[in-house]
Each structure stands twice: as structure tokens, then as C-alpha cells.
Amino acid sequence: MIASDHEQDHKPQTFNDHVMKTSSFSVNYWLDYIVRLFYIGKHSVRIFVIPLLSIMVGLLAWQGLTQTHADIILDFSNIPSPLHVYKSFLNVVVTKTYWKDIYWSLYRIALAFTIGSLVGVTVGVALGYSAILRLIIAPYIEIMRPIPAIAWVPMSILMWPTTEQSIVFITFLGAVFPIVLNTWDGVKRVPIELVKAARSLGANRISVLFHVVIPYAIPNITVGMALGMGAAWFALLAGEMISGRYGIGYFTWESYELIQYGNIIVGMLTIGILSSITSGAIYLIKRKIVPWSE
């Protein structure tokens, strides 16, 4: 686009413009050439091959930078190479501690997220459905909401008898606010006509809550839960790195302290995978329970 714009432009071109134009042209030309090599009449081939190539180029660049101990802004001299990471992974995946750490993180997430969902949906519905409860609860929400869950770490350790409980509490705090706010928002959006229709069919306030308000808010609630899941992992890792004894966050931080740099990246990738599996599960469940919104 940029190149063709310049061609139509008859203003005198500076040297820089000229260089930009020719270089972008040739890059496009080569990209096009490479793409055409893999273009066998079907989009599906491109869809697989190009991302794969992109990742492979990235890995090669990473390998090259670490092997040559490059030091350009970022210092690559201590960074493990992809091959090193792969070897670390093979070593670590057969150990019991790695799986134990995964188990502990998942257990904490499951516990904190379940409590967070129950509390979050209840509080969110209360805020949206009852004017009195809104006046009572909303000030607390407004005060606590802007405080990041990580800021609770010292208080949490003071408050709870065990470190384990304080980590779960921090994770719960991460999960609960997105769920509260999205549930509240969903309940606020319930069309008055639907409530009136239910009332005219003989539904009382409780029936309206369970048959109209909550079903209507479910898509919003699941969005809140997906956001809450991301925030829960964020908080969990902070908690595990600061005061944990087990868990994948602890694993990652311990790897740094024990100078097992390959394991740092194994830990990071594991966290990424766990986080996307758990968030993906929420969207999967959403599709199961709200077939009417698809």
C-alpha cells in the first residue's frame, strides 16, 4: 500500500523515501515468492504452513542469538537456547515434582475460582437486582476493585493462618472482581419488557430472578468468568512466587534461584498452556449451557 501510494505521488522524493519504497517492494516480492511456493491451490495448506514457518524462523533466530551470546539491548548470554529448553523439558517432565507443582497450581485455581464464582455471581446479582443491597455493597466494591490482587500479598499473609490459605485468598481476589462486575452489568441490562412479561405470567420476584434475570446475565457471567480465570492465574503466580512451597509459579521462580535457566522457560510455557486450557474450558462450558445465544 505504502509503495503504491508513493508511486502515484508526483512530489519530488527524498532519498529515504526512495530506499523505503524499493526495500518494501523487494521484501514483498520475496514474501510473495515464498508464499507461492507453498500455495497449492488450497487455503488450508497456507493456513498451516505460514504460521509454522513463522514459528520456525523465530526459533532459529532465538537459537542464533543465544549461540552467539548476542548482547543488543537484551542480553542473550544467559538465556537458554530452544534446544536447551527442549532438553530441560525432557528432563523435568519425568520428575514427580513437576507434576506435583502442576497439581498444586490447578488445585488452588479450582478452589479459588469456584469460591470466586459463587461469591462473584451472588454479589453481582445482589448489586444488580436490589437497590438496598446495591447501596450497602457497592462502596466496598468501588474501594477494593482498583487494588490489584498482588497488593494483598502482605495483608493476606498476616490475615490467614497458613501460607496455603493466603495464596488461595489472593487467587480468589483475582477471580472475584471481574465476575462481580460482569454479572452486575449483565443483570442491569435485563430488558424491562422481559421482566414485565414474566410478571404478567404470574411470576413472583424470586421466579423472575431465576427464570429471567440470571439466564439473561449468563453470557455476561461467562465473560466475567473467563476474565476472572486470567486474573486468577496472574494472582496465583504472584502468590506462589512470593510465598509458595509448591506450584508452577514456585517451580519457575525456584528454577531461577537454582540457576536452572532452561526450567524457567519450561515453567513459563506450562503456565501459558494451563491458563489457556482453563480459559478455553470456560468458553466450552458456555457453549454447552447457552445454546440459545449461538
Binding site: 430488558p191 419488557e193 422481559l194 414485565k196 414474566a198 404478567s200 439473561y216 440459545w292
Partner: peptide, 11 residues
């Protein structure tokens, strides 16, 4: 009541 808008419960 039958309203002007659609008020069937979508779920």
C-alpha cells in the same frame, strides 16, 4: 399481555 416487542425468553 402480548407486547409490541418480542418478549419470548430466548433461553
Amino acid at each position: 399481555i402480548v407486547f409490541q416487542q418480542h418478549t419470548l425468553f430466548p433461553w
